[in-house]
C-alpha cells in the first residue's frame, strides 16, 4: 500500500512543480530585481514610506509611521529663497522604505550615486532626517539618486517642517487608499496599449522599486488615478466629490466618504451627517434651491490624508 507504487509519479510531480516555480518565480525575480529605479520610484518610496498595507508600525492602517512630504520655497537653514523643492521628512523612528534599507533595491547605479553623492548610507531610522530626490547627468544620461539632505545640506527635521510652504501627507493618504479599498475600482495602471489620452503615460519597469503594495487594481469600475492630480487639481472639487460624489457628478456610483471627515470639522463643530442627508435630499427633490454646505475638514482628518494622496498623484 502507501505510495510505493507511485514513486516515479511523486518524483515527477516534485520535478514538475519545482521547474514551474523556477521559471515563474525565480527567473522573473532576477529580471525584475535587476532594474534601476526611475525618479518616480524614488519619489514614491520617499513619499509613501515603508509599507502602505498592514505593518508593525501601523497595525490598524491609521496612516501612522509615514513620512511627510513638504514643498520648500526657501532654504530651511539660511532662509534664502529657492525654486520650489520637494523634501521628504522622516521624523525620528519612522520606518524607512526598502530602498533606504537594502542595497539591492534601487539598482546598481542609483544605489552607488545615492551613497557617493547623496550620503544615503549615513541615514538611520532612529534619528530620521530629510531626503530629496536629486539627479546627476553623466555622458548625457540623467541618473536619479536619493540625497540625504540632513547630511549633505544640514537640513534638520524641525527646520524643514517649519520652512515648508505646503505639507503633503500623501504617505498616510496611500494607507487610506489601501484601507478604504479605492483600488477595487480605481486602477493605478494606465494600460500600455491605450489610455494615453484619457489617463496619461503608463508606468515603466523602474517606476515601482521599493513600493509596497503597488495596488495596480484589476477591475476598473472608475477612472484610472495614476495621474489624477495632473488632470484635476481642484481641492474644492475633490472635497465635494469625496463627501458625496453625486454633488458634482450626478451619475457617479462612487461611495460617499463623508465618514472620513471624522466627528468634527476644521472649526471644531460637530458634523451631523443625518441632518446633512436630509438637506441634501430636499435639494435633490427640488424642495430647496441650494445643496447643504460640505464641512471643511480638519487638518489631521483621514480625508485630508486621502485628498493629499490623490492630489499628489501627478
Amino acid at each position: 500500500m502507501g505510495f510505493r507504487e507511485y514513486r516515479i509519479g511523486s518524483i515527477l510531480f516534485g520535478v514538475a512543480l519545482s521547474t514551474s516555480m523556477v521559471v515563474t518565480v525565480y527567473m522573473p525575480s532576477l529580471d525584475i530585481s535587476g532594474v534601476s529605479s526611475t525618479a518616480t520610484a524614488l519619489e514614491k518610496q520617499l513619499t509613501y514610506g515603508s509599507n502602505s498595507g498592514f505593518d508593525y508600525g501601523d497595525l490598524f492602517l491609521h496612516g501612522n509611521d509615514k513620512p511627510t512630504k513638504v514643498i520648500l520655497k526657501k532654504n530651511p537653514v539660511t532662509g534664502a529663497a529657492m525654486d520650489d523643492t520637494a523634501a521628504y521628512v522622516f521624523p525620528a523612528g519612522t520606518s524607512f522604505p526598502s530602498g533606504l534599507k537594502h542595497d539591492n533595491i534601487l539598482g546598481a547605479d542609483v544605489q552607488a550615486l545615492s551613497v557617493s553623492m547623496g550620503k544615503m548610507d549615513q541615514a538611520a531610522e532612529v534619528t530620521g532626517g530629510v531626503f530629496l530626490v536629486s539627479s546627476k547627468v553623466t555622458n548625457g544620461v540623467e541618473t536619479p539618486y536619493v540625497e540625504f539632505a540632513t547630511a549633505t545640506r544640514g537640513w534638520g527635521i524641525e527646520a524643514t517642517l517649519a520652512a515648508a510652504s505646503e505639507t503633503i501627507l500623501a504617505g498616510a493618504g496611500k494607507t487610506m487608499f489601501v484601507r478604504e479599498g479605492c483600488w477595487w475600482c480605481h486602477t493605478l495602471l494606465p494600460e500600455q496599449t491605450h489610455d494615453w489620452q484619457s489617463f496619461g503615460r503608463p508606468p515603466v519597469l523602474g517606476d515601482f522599486n521599493g513600493e509596497s503594495p503597488t495596488t495596480f487594481g484589476s477591475d476598473r469600475k472608475a477612472p484610472d488615478l495614476l495621474h489624477v492630480g495632473s488632470r484635476n487639481s481642484s481641492k474644492e472639487w475633490m472635497m465635494l466629490h469625496f463627501f458625496n460624489p453625486r454633488l458634482v457628478q450626478p451619475h457617479s456610483i462612487m461611495p460617499r466618504y463623508d465618514y472620513l471627515w471624522g466627528p468634527k470639522d476644521k472649526a471644531g463643530n460637530v458634523i451631523d451627517l443625518v441632518k446633512w442627508d436630509e438637506e441634501f435630499e430636499a435639494y435633490r427633490d427640488g424642495d430647496s434651491v441650494y445643496p447643504p454646505e460640505v464641512p471643511e475638514y480638519a487638518d489631521d482628518s483621514e480625508i485630508r490624508y486621502l485628498m493629499d494622496f490623490v492630489l499628489n498623484s501627478k
Binding site: 518565480v25 522573473p28 525584475i32 533595491i105 513600493e211 509596497s212 503597488t214
Partner: peptide, 10 residues
C-alpha cells in the same frame, strides 16, 4: 517585505 514589481507579480 518584498516590494515593487516583484510584489505585484507575486
Amino acid at each position: 517585505h518584498l516590494t515593487g514589481l516583484n510584489e505585484a507579480y507575486m
